[in-house]
Write a protein that binds this DNA or RNA. Structure first.
Lengths: 196, 196
DNA sequence: GCCAAATAGTCCGAATAGGACGGTCCGAAC
DNA sequence: GTTCGGACCGTCCTATTCGGACTATTTGGC
């Protein structure tokens, strides 16, 4: 009953049920794969333990299906809805965490042959183009859902990130191949406030 | 001796030692914090076990310091250098992994009060500005190191990502506050190749 | 009825997280 | 030359998390 440890995954579950109505863990798993997995990955097995935990905590209520597989279907309790809203009302300064294997290789590019860098860059360009294509489709789908406004906003951010990266990797692929060393492009600068 | 399981962290260690010369684990830890931690985070305790492991595998050689603390100092063996170069020569299509707590909140923005969204966006704008300031300093520092060319490239990618996000969050902060619903900005679209 | 495919859920060893904690060295103060 | 504080350096430990292998159940085609 008491609101105990609530993790990001807890809110994923609460949020999805708030959005989609009473759901089975399996449905949640599928819903996660459709979007959230792109910016908050976690193993699907967690959904099963998390729904159980949230039920114990009184934030979800369970209703067994009568027919067929008799799956557990969870709905939000009032406490659950409140917990979700409370969470949403606290902003976070937590900044994005990035993990890129390709960055790692590029970082040590000094020890690679020029061709290696070019190959890496080409592979990244291709991968990013695929990714952009799929995000574009997602945007297309969201465009006709005036609710889902904020999902759209997230998708757009994702799109912008992928776009920016694509541009950069293309440039990386071209550099070395170019006719001459290129002059550093001017880049927006902002007032500094110290930090490192 | 046999080249066994080499993880990304292995290459971080090999790469840093290749760049900086023989190093102690503590020095590596500090070096990681200066840049790599931003796109390949891992607990510092791993450096200690990893250097040990790489020594066993014959990719590093250890030389105890004679004086003072008698710290372990590791240098690259030929095998180590080869392993690094082999790794660098294989491109990766692995695409970036993103993890953002703020995205999660925004995603479920439907259940938040408009003010909550605005607050979140403002917090993100502030955090990103700080981050951009520190990246800008890093770029400044790298500008005068013609070696470090590829580190610079990574830093620029990071900068572009943060810039793009800043723009988007600013827009999010403004939306709702704006005089009217704004027309969707035209956005670059690319040929689709399917994927989801 | 039987089989294949899709659906649904469980389990568990391995890897990671990341902070708490314990020593060690050095320079400054007295 | 002793003491002390702070930076330096490294180890350890527990709680998650990872993520895939595995099992079971249902449905639908024939």
């Amino acid at each position: 009953m008491s609101s105990a440890r609530l993790t990001p995954v807890s809110y994923v579950v609460l949020g999805l049920i708030a959005r989609d109505g009473p759901s089975t863990p399996y449905e949640l798993k599928a819903a996660v794969g459709l979007g959230i997995a792109h910016f908050w990955p976690f193993p699907h097995s967690q959904i099963y333990s998390e729904t159980e935990y949230l039920k114990e905590a009184g934030l979800l209520a369970e209703e067994r299906e009568n027919r067929g597989r008799r799956r557990r279907r969870f709905r939000l309790t009032d406490a659950g809805r409140q917990a979700l809203q409370a969470w949403l009302s606290e902003p976070t300064s937590d900044t994005l965490h990035l993990r890129s294997y390709a960055f790692l290789k590029l970082y040590f590019g000094h020890f690679a042959r020029p061709d290696d860098i070019a190959g890496l860059a080409r592979a990244q360009v291709a991968a990013l183009q695929d990714q952009l294509a799929s995000v574009t489709q997602m945007l297309e789908r969201l465009k006709v859902r005036p609710d889902r406004k904020w999902q759209m906003a997230v998708a757009e951010m994702y799109f912008q990130i992928a776009s920016a990266l694509l541009t950069q990797w293309k440039q990386t692929a071209a550099s070395g191949r170019g006719p001459a060393r290129r002059i550093a492009r001017p880049v927006a600068r902002r007032k500094s406030k110290a930090r490192a």
